[in-house]
């Protein structure tokens, strides 16, 4: 326990955060933080179960970082964005983010041709890359700011995490299936999404070393809401959970923790449906 506590404490110092507040305790910046990071690594205080490459959120140390840009298949991306827009999702920032992230890089080669269709696609191990529209909607629901810290449970291909970096560089992602975690880690590095921290581990426990989070997305909820995740949600934070099968997300659930720590949920319904009297449809 002391091991974990001390690790967490030193880490907080290193990152200039303590008790969830954004107060820089050490002003010396990059150099001192790196010293502490190296010391941490040397002491072997990294948590077990992490991917070697993801044990330390290295990109946090960079002051300036802009998401990578890609030109390839831009026309197809624009068409995909137009499709998303046609569903009355008009948040410009979200649409811009969707137009920048190369979805074809996150899709298995066999399905690359269909990468910009508005459909979920299989990525192996029974997992999917979400329908672009759902990714856009989930991103919109999180209402992110540049300083927001986001935890994603279920990295999958890494596409959602990449989209999130268009809003904030503080993205943490946990994937329970090792081959997917490793592949996502490599892919994100290759594409230049350095700030994303991918960890192979059990998402049930969240990522307490970096808690609390402003937003959490759980892409693999199966009827149970892990208590550790609720604990790791910052007061005022939002957790978004797709509801339905992975290939058939029908709506989103939003869990909000108020300032007193009380949790309430909201269903972001897919349909304006009760009572749907057809003759009055035009008036709805």
């Amino acid at each position: 326990m002391w091991h974990a506590l001390s690790s967490s404490f030193i880490w907080s110092l290193a990152m200039g955060k303590f008790n969830g507040e954004q107060k820089p305790l050490l002003k010396s910046g990059r150099a001192l933080r790196w010293i502490l990071l190296v010391a941490l690594a040397g002491l072997g205080l990294a948590q077990p179960g992490m991917c070697a490459a993801s044990e330390e959120p290295q990109a946090e140390s960079k002051e300036e970082w802009t998401p990578p840009r890609f030109d390839e298949r831009q026309k197809e991306r624009n068409a995909m964005v137009r499709k998303i827009k046609s569903y009355a999702l008009e948040d410009e920032a979200v649409l811009k983010a969707m137009s920048r992230v190369p979805r074809h890089e996150f899709v298995p080669e066999a399905n690359s041709r269909r990468a910009y269709k508005d459909t979920p696609l299989p990525i192996g191990h029974g997992q999917t890359i979400s329908q672009p529209y759902m990714v856009a909607e989930m991103t919109r629901q999180r209402k992110l700011k540049p300083e927001s810290k986001v935890l994603e449970i279920g990295t999958g291909s890494g596409y959602q995490a990449a989209v999130l970096t268009e809003f904030t560089r503080h993205v943490y992602s946990v994937e329970i299936i090792k081959p997917l975690a490793e592949a996502a880690q490599k892919r994100l590095k290759r594409l230049g999404y350095d700030p994303i921290n991918v960890r192979h581990g059990d998402g049930y426990y969240g990522w307490k070393e970096h808690a609390p989070f402003d937003a959490i997305i759980v892409t693999c909820a199966a009827g149970q809401m892990p208590p550790p995740l609720i604990k790791q949600l910052k007061p005022g934070g939002r957790m978004v959970i797709p509801v339905g099968a992975p290939f058939a997300v029908q709506s989103l659930m939003l869990v909000k923790k108020d300032k007193e720590g009380e949790v309430r949920s909201r269903s972001l319904m897919a349909v304006r449906f009760v009572p749907l009297v057809r003759k009055d449809k035009s008036s709805e």
Partner: peptide, 30 residues
């Protein structure tokens, strides 16, 4: 209150299903 929907859909639907509006509700429901 605790798990909020955009409107109290369940409550409205239950009231309709258990009243004389049942047939109209079923006819109109998606």
């Amino acid at each position: 209150y605790f798990h909020q929907l955009p409107r109290p859909y369940y409550h409205e639907a239950a009231i309709a299903l258990l009243s004389r509006e049942r047939d109209a509700f079923l006819e109109g429901y998606l």
